[in-house]
């Protein structure tokens, strides 16, 4: 009988285990299992047909999937790099401001306060070829007379999405890098100035190494964000025109809900989670290296 007596900590934690299992673990396992079935929402019985790795083999040999995958990686690469440059610039400027720094910091965070759906609608409007702000401005400035088909041409649509993405999330970099700048000890910078550094050299050799960990933290956060990008694209182009702005998750959603091929969609989803994990691991490595570099004690 003694063996049946469960310890108090276990008993106390049990309810949360049960809740977690019900809402996280079971769905996770079920969706993972379904990626090995030809499960269609319209044919519930297909859930019980096991087809092994067939879904995975199909998507890996599906050109459309790879294009969406590649486009996601491209979006991620370009967006992250530009966001970092812009964020760094913003942070450096705000740090220089001797007055009104609080206000500036708050303003800087505005874009983060809007739902991505709204950002999507806003940019969809701005890039509209007829009534959009962008074309209006370009025409008013006499740069072009044509109505540029921003959201209709594949490349331009990609640029439009990129712009929306960067607008809404540069502040992640700006805030984190600014935090780094504010936490940075002043003396090494002064020492560098005395040691003969120009402002650029001071930045290059002293300030930047110190900011790198902060930039990597922002990179990690944002890489996960962009790798699961869905809402802005859904609103602005819905993956169109003709699938030319299709990203992984718009493809997954289309496959799962429009085509009702849930099994395949889940296989895609699990595969692309790999992408996120890879990026996270990569940036965490970089972060750890950068921290050792500056001898950080945190």
């Amino acid at each position: 009988m003694k063996n049946w007596k469960l310890s108090a900590p276990f008993l106390l934690l049990l309810p949360s285990f049960i809740v977690l299992a019900a809402v996280v673990i079971v769905p996770l396992l079920l969706s993972f299992y379904s990626s090995f079935t030809p499960f269609r929402l319209t044919k519930p019985e297909s859930f019980f047909v096991f087809i092994g790795l067939r879904n995975y083999i199909n998507i890996l040999s599906d050109w459309n999937f790879w294009v969406a995958f590649g486009r996601t990686v491209l979006l991620l690469t370009i967006a992250l790099n530009l966001e970092m440059l812009l964020g760094l610039g913003l942070a450096l400027l705000v740090e220089k401001a001797s007055r009104g720094q609080r206000i500036l910091r708050t303003i800087m965070m505005f874009p983060m306060m809007f739902s991505p759906i709204l950002v999507g609608f806003q940019f969809k409007f701005m890039f509209n070829d007829n009534i959009g702000l962008v074309n209006n401005a370009l025409q008013a400035l006499g740069i072009t007379n044509n109505a540029i088909p921003w959201l209709i041409d594949g490349t331009l649509a990609f640029i439009a999405i990129l712009t929306a993405e960067i607008w809404s999330s540069t502040s992640v970099f700006a805030i984190l890098i600014l935090a780094g700048l504010l936490a940075m000890p002043r003396e090494p910078v002064e020492a560098a100035r005395v040691d003969g550094c120009t402002p650029w050299q001071t930045f290059r050799y002293v300030t930047w190494p110190f900011l790198m960990p902060f930039a990597y933290i922002a990179m990690t956060i944002r890489s996960l964000d962009v790798a699961r990008a869905y809402d802005i694209v859904k609103i602005m182009t819905d993956g169109g025109p003709a699938g030319r702005t299709e990203l992984i998750w718009t493809l997954v959603a289309r496959t799962g809900y429009s085509d009702a091929r849930m099994g395949v969609a889940n296989a895609m989803a699990y595969f692309s989670i790999l992408l996120s994990i890879l990026f996270t691991v990569y940036f965490f490595r970089k972060l750890a290296a950068a921290r050792t570099q500056i001898g950080a004690e945190w």
């Binding site: 003396e187 100035r193 005395v194 110190f210 570099q293 500056i294």
Partner: peptide
């Protein structure tokens, strides 16, 4: 400061944390 040809030792040492001792000393 860089045009004044001075060396300074700071109260808090102000070493460059990401450089080795050799790099710190040779930086200027």
């Amino acid at each position: 400061p860089r045009s004044r040809n001075i060396s300074m030792v700071f109260q808090s040492y102000a070493l460059y944390p990401h450089m080795t001792v050799r790099e710190n000393m040779g930086f200027s």
